[in-house]
Nucleic acid binder design. Structure first.
Length: 430
RNA sequence: GGAGCGGUGGCAGAGUGGUUGAAUGCACCAGUCUUGAAAACUGGCAUGGGUGCGAGCCCAUCGUGGGUUCAAAUCCCACCCGCUCCGCCA
């Protein structure tokens, strides 16, 4: 959510910022509503003030056993008037809130202008792409090994789910633990274990609601399945006033992420690239506003470190305005090399949301003796575990169809160095 | 799921429908005293918003939303959350 005070003072800047993101000018409408709202509010407050005044006088009169009839008369008129302005103020407030809730964050000055991912800017690349003749796709490799089944998953749940077993299931665990250990032991994060469902207020806080409800799974009890653990991690400070010395707060967690993938029909239909449920290790920073820019660089470096340790080639891109997420001020995506597709695919997204989410969440810190200020929030995948498995399968595939296990993961695999065909009892898995 | 109890400021904890944004204690901050500290004493100490150049003034908020009333932390209704006991259960 954007700051109404800022909009009031910089309407032209708002429209300019919206235009960069392909949204028509809104300042005139917002300002009009804001003015009406405040004028109704002033009127209302005057009446309330008068009501309080008379109320006190009645109290005094009663205590002194004096007649208060004339006071009651005036009150008879004020009551309905207050009701009227209350309603008017509430409607305008609602209208303003609805508009502000649906406006995306303002892009950073360093965010390149652009329409879609074609216009993203490659910042740097890392690693050497292995020469693999006739590279197989991860799903072919996994199924051939008898360790990955989309048939079983489809039977259990439907399309866009995956079943892993044996060494591949264990590899998922190994990757997850490696990432969590690295972030907690090397990068200074606090590990959390979080609810995988959340209420509407929580989803509003991070910006998934009200605009993107169709992307979410919702239970008939009114809970939403989290589309990312950014949601619970970031909302952990919702409504709080944090002592300044407690900043920055850095959380990490591993969790499943649930996405309806509405509107992505026909895209990445095969394999694990785009599924309804995937495991992801998430990193979240809650920081002082002066520190968020530097925190984003730090966050990206933490995600990059994982890829480097796994020796997976990747590139870092600065997302353009057209590809920027709703709540993001600036975003770096990490894209890992996928031999079967002969291109880089997103494996992490690291965003600085500035005060955008904090304002929705009312998450503040104590900035002075008596002042509070909104914190800045950042989030990044570190990394998407499902896609990391894809990347390992494809980049570490060997001519015989087996998969070499990256060195750093071997301790997490009990010393195992390679994943080969396993004698499985699960007939359909092969 | 059944029965009961409860949600008030950073925490603890009062509060008879009427000058209560709310006693008191603790914590915290400033000052007095002291060589210094502690103790004691004095004062300050919620959040959001409106308005004003400003000191300030005003409004709202006692879990949330309605209602009763001239007036609600206080009465009524619904919901949410927490706790205890019973049932069920990993």
């Amino acid at each position: 959510m954007l700051d109404i005070k800022w909009i009031r003072e910089n309407p032209a800047d708002l429209d300019k910022a919206l235009k960069r993101r392909g949204i028509p000018a809104f300042s005139e409408k917002i300002l009009l509503i804001d003015e009406q709202r405040r004028s109704a509010m002033t009127e209302l407050q005057n009446l309330q003030s008068r009501r309080n005044d008379i109320s006190k006088q009645i109290g005094v009169a009663k205590a002194q056993k004096q007649d208060a009839a004339h006071l009651f008369d005036e009150m008879k008129n004020i009551g309905p008037a207050i009701k009227k302005f209350e309603e008017q103020e509430r409607e305008l407030e609602q209208e303003q809130h609805d508009i502000l809730s649906a406006l995306p964050n303002i892009a950073d000055a360093n965010t390149p202008d652009g329409k879609d991912e074609e216009d993203n800017e490659v910042i740097r690349t890392w690693g050497e792409i292995r020469k693999i003749s006739d590279p197989q796709a991860h799903y072919d490799l996994g199924e051939a090994l008898g360790l990955m089944s989309f048939d079983i998953a489809a039977k259990l749940a439907g399309s866009r789910f995956v079943w892993l077993q044996g060494s591949l299931a264990k590899l998922e665990r190994a990757v997850t633990n490696f990432m969590l250990d690295t972030h907690t032991e090397r990068h200074g994060y606090i590990e959390a274990s979080v609810p995988f469902m959340a209420n509407g207020e929580t989803l509003f806080g991070t910006g998934q609601l009200p605009k993107f409800s169709e992307d979410l799974f919702k239970t008939d009890m009114g809970y939403y399945l989290i589309p990312t653990s950014e949601v619970p991690l970031t909302n952990s400070v919702r409504g709080d006033i944090i002592p300044a010395e407690n900043l920055p707060i850095k959380f990490t967690t591993a969790s499943p992420s649930f996405r309806s993938e509405a509107g992505s029909a026909g895209r990445d239909t095969r394999g694990m690239i785009r599924v309804h449920q995937f495991t992801k290790v998430e990193m979240v920073h809650i920081v002082h506003p002066d520190k968020s820019e530097a925190a984003l660089e730090e966050l990206v470096s933490h995600a990059e470190y994982i890829l480097q340790q796994l020796e997976l080639p990747y590139q870092v891109v600065n997302l353009c305005t057209g590809d920027l997420g709703f709540g993001a001020h600036k975003t770096y995506d990490l894209e890992v090399w996928l031999p079967s597709q002969n291109k880089y695919r997103e494996i992490s997204s690291c965003s600085n949301c500035g005060a955008f989410q904090a304002r929705r969440m009312k998450a503040r810190f104590r900035s002075g003796e008596k002042q509070t200020e909104l914190v800045h929030t950042l989030n990044g995948s570190g990394l998407a575990v499902g896609r990391t498995l894809v990347a390992i399968l494809e980049n570490y595939q060997q001519a015989d169809g087996s998969i070499a296990i990256p060195t750093v993961l071997q301790p997490y695999m009990g010393g195992q160095t390679v994943i080969a065909i396993e004698n499985t009892k699960q007939a359909k898995a092969g």
